[in-house]
Each structure stands twice: as structure tokens, then as C-alpha cells.
Design a protein around this nucleic acid. Structure first.
Lengths: 233, 233
DNA sequence: TAAATAGTGTCTTTTAGACATTATAAG
DNA sequence: CTTATAATGTCTAAAAGACACTATTTA
């Protein structure tokens, strides 16, 4: 890249620049299904459609910092798993102006999901299908704004691709969890039922799960043992 | 995101916006090693350092279109494997101004590498280590500009992560290739030697390789059979 | 004691690593 | 006939799917 190109870009009005935003895909388990937290648009364009929480990237703010700020402002938390997902830059993705968005994937525990929903700023929508579509808890289909179906599909696919060899499933669970709950997460993300003994053995053979010796409390049947992740090494 | 935020952003001088560029990581095999194509900076800042080819994203140009344009302009080709890699947006990554770059990974065949080098616009640099460092063919270490070592490391890691389950290795090979050449690509990318019979069986059992019946020509020993990829299904 | 889920044992198939052996070309 | 590499066979170990079975809690 030549310095002349940079220099002429020093004058912000000489050449039009795209706006840059960060959008958050907040994913977690809700009612036993994989769900995203969405905001309802009440202004045109696309009023009535459901959108990802997002905002502009500040001129003195890194992309990661912008994602963290939005996580606090839109979902009211600051300790979720957060990773950059993909950048979307189709020319007409927003009818108002040229906007390039860097999408981030945030993984929430059930208690974080519940707290964000209680705050009233976001609503949970179950995700299914390919490409992904969103459904409200009562089963109604929720229309998605802009290219957000595409973004949600890529987020779901990222989760599917990484769940077998990474620790991301645990970001969707409390610190102590049963093997059944862990299997429920895997099945919801992958969209297929899994073999129980095989799943159990695969998880335990990995050597990362530590039995706590305590058991779940509220079950109306034999209670399962609670495990925690050994994130020390 | 509120419409007020969008509206105030309609005036480009009201709020400073970052510049947006696309940088290309052009990877291929060179002298039996994994190598990137770099440009030497002859102007400050970082004069004498080696940088990825890149350029601004046009206001009416998608990210993918900008990457394709740069592939043509900087490497003189338009049929390489091209995929978005990651976006880099640290506030001080470029000392001149705030620049967010969307990095793309391009995979080149040996003949494309050679043609780009002959054009004189880029130079091949072998990649090794973690984080990646660059070396010229004569063994000299090449200092990398800005955050480009970080970008190259992420490109190399993407290649490593996908080579076992995707077709990207074939993007680095001509249409017809020997199993030894395919193994050389895997070994260069992964940085470890592989077992020959096991590698051969794994590739053939996948059912994607088609024996052509012809053999390599220039060998001074028993010539190996040439295969091609079945990219039909 | 019935119901429901937790948890285990075992068989089989698949996959992959290691290593020895045979085959075929050039010089 | 020597040398170098191609190509194959076989043994073994680890991983994963399927399924039957036992164990333990609540109601």
C-alpha cells in the first residue's frame, strides 16, 4: 500500500469511508434448545424484524474492546466467552448506508441468559435449520433483520465445528454440571441425538472433567453426580 | 442500534471513522517449504520491513470483491482459493492512522507462486516458528511490518486446522500430482514428518483421489503415479 | 414396588501409527 | 546390478458406535 493512498485518506471528507460496527451473537441454552438473544426493531428500516445487538466501533477503541463494551451495555455482563466470528461487508447489507460489521460470538450460561432476558433489552429465540431461522418460545417464527440470518448461521456453524475438540460447550454451562446436561448441550448444538455411554466415556477419557462428589438436588429420580471442568492445564 | 446513531453518522465529518483495508496472505509451496508472498516497504513507517499486500476497501465494493481485486493487482491472478481469515483492529496497529484490516487467505499453486515472483511485485518468504517468522530463500531473516507476523501466524494456523478435513491442500498443488507431493504439502503445513504408508492409505480411503494412469516424467528413479482430485461431488 | 434416570461392561467397527517387504524405474 | 523411490501387506493400538445390563434415587 502506497503512502499517497494513506495520505489522501487523512482527509476524511476526501474519500468516503464505510462505517464500522460490531454485532454480537449472544448464544446460550434456553428451554433445552440453542437460542440467541435478539432485539426487536421498532424503527424503519425493517421495523418489526429481529436484530443482533450491535453498535459503532469507536475511533480509539479496538474491535475486542467494542465487543466487550456492547456485551456490558446490551446484555449486562462482562465475563462471557467472547470470540471474533466473521466480518460482513456486502455493499447493500444495510439500506441506510455502507456498513461493515465485525460479528462476535458470545457464549452465555443459563443464568446469564435469564438475567439478560429479565432486563428486558433482549428476547430469546430458538435457532434451527439451515440456514438458521429463529422462533420465539411460543413457537412463532421471528423475521430476522438485514443479513442477520446469515450471521446467526455462521455462529451456529462455528459452534458445531468447535464443540468436539474445544472447551466451548462448558461456556454454556454453570461451573458444576451433570454429564446429562453436558450431553444436552452437545445435542442441541449438533442437532442430533448422541449415544449416552459413548458420550460419557469420550468426555471422561479426555481427562478434563473432575467429579465433585456432590449430586444434583432437585431431581425426582436418581440424582446424577456433578462435575466441573479442570481448566488448570 | 438506534437510528439517531446512524443519522449522526451520515455526516462523515461529525464522527471520525476508521479506515478499512483488506490485506492478503498469499501462501504457497516454495522450495519445498510453506512460503508467503511479501512486499518490501521502501517508505516510512517501517521502511525496509516486509508487509502483506493490501489496499483500501472501496465505498461501493464488498470485502470479497476488494480481496479479489487485490489478488489481481498484486499477484496477477484471479483463480486462487480465497477465504476471509480474520479482522485486525488494534488501535495502534498502524502509526499513521486508525486502520481496521480484514485479512484474507489466498492459496496459490507453485506455478502461480512462480509467476507472481517473476512479476517482481512480491518476494517469497519461508514461514516457520510460533509465532511465525519469515526467511528469504538465502536464509536471511525478514523483519515483518506492523502486526503482520500476527496475521501470518493466524493464516498458518488456519491452514493447519483445516488441512486434515478439507480440500485446501489441493489448492497448493497442480491439477495432477503425486502422492509424495501431496504428503510434502501436508508435512510443510503441519511442520512434522508423516508416515508414508499411513498417509497414502488415509488419502486413498477418503475416496476423493482418482488415479490418472499416467506417471511423472522427470524422475531419476521409479516414477510415481499422478492423481487428480475428484471435485465433482 | 414401580418408575425414571444414572452409570457400567462388552462387543464390534473404524482409524491410524509403525515397520517390514516387494516392485519398478534410471543409470 | 546398484540405487533410489514407489507401492503394498500386516500387525497393533487407540477411538468410537451400538446395545444390553446393573444401580440408585423418589414417589
Amino acid at each position: 500500500m502506497t503512502d499517497e493512498a494513506f495520505l489522501r485518506d487523512y482527509d476524511p471528507s476526501a474519500f468516503a469511508r464505510p462505517s464500522v460496527t460490531v454485532d454480537l451473537v449472544l448464544l446460550g441454552m434456553h428451554d433445552g434448545q440453542l437460542a440467541a438473544l435478539l432485539m426487536r426493531r421498532d424503527q424503519p428500516p425493517q421495523a418489526g424484524c429481529w436484530a443482533l445487538p450491535g453498535g459503532f466501533v469507536g475511533i480509539d477503541e479496538s474491535l475486542d474492546a467494542a465487543a466487550l463494551r456492547l456485551l456490558r451495555d446490551k446484555a449486562g455482563m462482562d465475563d462471557a466467552h467472547l470470540e471474533q466470528l466473521y466480518s460482513f461487508g456486502a455493499v447493500d447489507r444495510d439500506p441506510r448506508m455502507r456498513v461493515i460489521t465485525i460479528a462476535y460470538l458470545a457464549l452465555l450460561r443459563a443464568d446469564q441468559m435469564a438475567a439478560a432476558i429479565r432486563s428486558g433489552r433482549v428476547t430469546a429465540a430458538a435457532l434451527a435449520g439451515d440456514p438458521v431461522s429463529a422462533r420465539s418460545p411460543d413457537g412463532a417464527s421471528l423475521p430476522l433483520a438485514f443479513d442477520h440470518a446469515q450471521i446467526l448461521t455462521r455462529a451456529r456453524d462455528r459452534l458445531r465445528g468447535k464443540i468436539d475438540y474445544s472447551d466451548i460447550a462448558f461456556a454454556l454451562l454453570p461451573a458444576r454440571f451433570t454429564l446429562r446436561a453436558l450431553q444436552d448441550v452437545h445435542e442441541a448444538v449438533l442437532g442430533v441425538p448422541l449415544n449416552k455411554p459413548g458420550f460419557r466415556r469420550r468426555m471422561l477419557d479426555r481427562g478434563r472433567l473432575i467429579a465433585t462428589g456432590t449430586r444434583e438436588a432437585d431431581a425426582s429420580h436418581r440424582p446424577a453426580e456433578l462435575f466441573r471442568l479442570n481448566d488448570g492445564d
